[in-house]
């Protein structure tokens, strides 16, 4: 199972529409979840509508969350989407085997067995979650909470029986016109990673759409490191020193 989890606080303003990009991800079997993160106030009508639409196009879920509930929201969305992906697969089977189109249509006695299989699959299937973090200027005060949520998600995923990996990207990338940069490649364990996201070089633009497409590319890539420009990465690494 493949998921992209976009954490953002505003509207995209550069490049391809994020809704189109999410639809592309969905077409390639990647579910896109979106968390709109709030500090004070709200995202505005535009922002909320956009995150909802990105998730809908990406076959995932969207939620608005305060920085305080970010960890819980991130985990809830990830888990729900895993269950949903399995539910879609199970629904196809249900039609063929039992003639019912959804679990709700089955009498309670028959639901038990189906749900047991679903629970087992949710726990044991392979899972890859790419976290795509909006690191534009307005997100800066929220990045500590974002990092905590990433760590917490990694801890929960580690407890699963199936292999679970996460990768972390942020956008906008450097001043050289990159839409998105890889901060942490597929890994099962984030202990020892001091800091995921750079705290400097925040620019004003929010190229959400191009960034999603870049992550979709990364899912396709057999050799994960090929999308990383080594010079860029080194430049980023030096910023990690606190």
């Amino acid at each position: 199972m493949k998921q992209i989890l976009l954490i953002t606080d505003g509207c995209s303003n550069v490049g391809v529409s994020p809704v189109v990009a999410a639809a592309q991800a969905h077409a390639e079997g990647i579910a896109v979840n979106v968390v709109g993160v709030l500090d004070q106030g709200d995202l505005g009508e535009f922002g909320s509508a956009e995150i909802e639409e990105i998730a809908r196009a990406g076959g995932g879920l969207s939620r608005l969350a305060h920085t305080r509930q970010l960890s819980q929201t991130v985990q809830m969305l990830t888990r729900k989407t895993v269950v949903q992906t399995i539910q879609h697969a199970v629904h196809r089977e249900l039609k063929q085997v039992l003639g019912a189109s959804s679990i709700e249509e089955l009498p309670p006695e028959k639901r038990g067995e189906v749900v047991r299989v679903m629970d087992e699959l949710s726990e044991t299937s392979k899972l890859r979650v790419a976290l795509l973090i909006d690191a534009s200027a307005s997100m800066k005060p929220k990045l500590a909470a974002v990092e905590e949520a990433i760590r917490d998600l990694a801890l929960s995923l580690q407890a699963r029986q199936g292999r679970s990996e996460i990768a972390v990207f942020h956008f906008p990338g450097s001043a050289h016109g990159d839409e998105c940069l890889l901060d942490l490649d597929w890994t099962t364990d984030v202990r020892g990673v001091h800091q995921f996201l750079p705290r400097l070089q925040m620019r004003g633009t929010t190229p959400t759409g191009p960034a999603i497409l870049r992550v979709v590319d990364h899912f396709r890539a057999p050799a994960p490191r090929s999308y990383r420009n080594p010079d860029e990465t080194d430049g980023q690494m030096s910023d990690y020193v606190v």
Binding site: E123, D152, A159, R160
Partner: peptide, 21 residues
């Protein structure tokens, strides 16, 4: 052996860096 299905942060072993979930 499976991942804990529901927990409350303040009572959670993972939250206190005291082990896995």
């Amino acid at each position: 052996g499976k991942s804990v299905r529901q927990f409350t942060e303040i009572y959670d072993r993972g939250y206190w860096n005291a082990g896995s979930r």
